[in-house]
Structure formats: C-alpha cells, structure tokens
C-alpha cells in the first residue's frame, strides 16, 4: 500500500499552437490555489493530461470548470485526457463527466 502523493506536480510542454499540461498528485481544496496560480495563459490547443491525478474533490472540479470556461470565452480549445477511476467517479457523481470536454478512453 503506497501513500498517495500529497503534493501536486505540474509540468507544461508548449509551442506556439499547442500546450500540454500534465498534472500528477492530488487536486484537492488545499492544492487548488497553487494550481490556479500556476495556470498557463491559454493556447489555441490545450491538453490537460490527468493521468497522474489520484484524487480530485469539488474544489478541483470547480478549478477544471474555470479553466474550461476561460478557454471557451477566449475561443480556444481545451481537452481533458487520461482521467483515472477516482477522478472519473467524482466527475460522474457531479454530472461533469458528460459536461466537461473529456476525451473518452477508446
């Protein structure tokens, strides 16, 4: 049994057209302020890779919604990928799995 990581790592790869943000760790009420502070200015194409996110709570979900709305307002495209089980559960419970731009597993 491994303890879940207690911090959130954010790694960003971007070029002129595309931005890939890879998150790993917990996206909870404690981590969200740091996450939002670190949020990159939007790019025309943004991929939010959640493959390393082990836990998300309502604050984390709200932060995702905020980013998605900001992208929509700027006429840019944002996609959420690699949603893990626990994150998917939180999204499903709140009805956000269908409402957020989540790339479905093939």
């Amino acid at each position: 049994m491994t303890r879940p990581p207690i911090t959130l790592d954010i790694s960003v790869q971007r070029d002129a057209e595309q931005c890939c943000v890879r998150l790993s760790g917990r996206l909870d009420a404690h981590q969200v302020p740091a996450f939002l502070a670190a949020a990159e200015p939007p790019a025309p194409q943004t991929v939010l890779d959640l493959s390393g996110v082990t836990f998300i709570d309502s604050s984390g979900l709200a932060a995702l919604v905020r980013l998605v709305r900001a992208a929509q307002a700027a006429g840019q495209h944002l996609e959420i990928t690699h949603v893990q089980d626990s994150v998917r559960l939180a999204m499903e419970i709140t009805g956000l799995y269908g409402a957020l731009p989540v790339r479905r597993a093939p």
Partner: peptide, 19 residues
C-alpha cells in the same frame, strides 16, 4: 447544486448526497 451544470462551486454537497 444541480448535477452536470458547469459552475465554479457547489459540487461538494452534491458529492456527499450521492455517496
């Protein structure tokens, strides 16, 4: 709050209620 609505708060109690 209502499920499936894009807003920036109000998901917490929904989660508790559903669990």
């Amino acid at each position: 709050g209502t499920a499936g609505e894009l807003r920036e708060h109000g998901y917490g109690l929904l989660i508790v209620q559903r669990c």
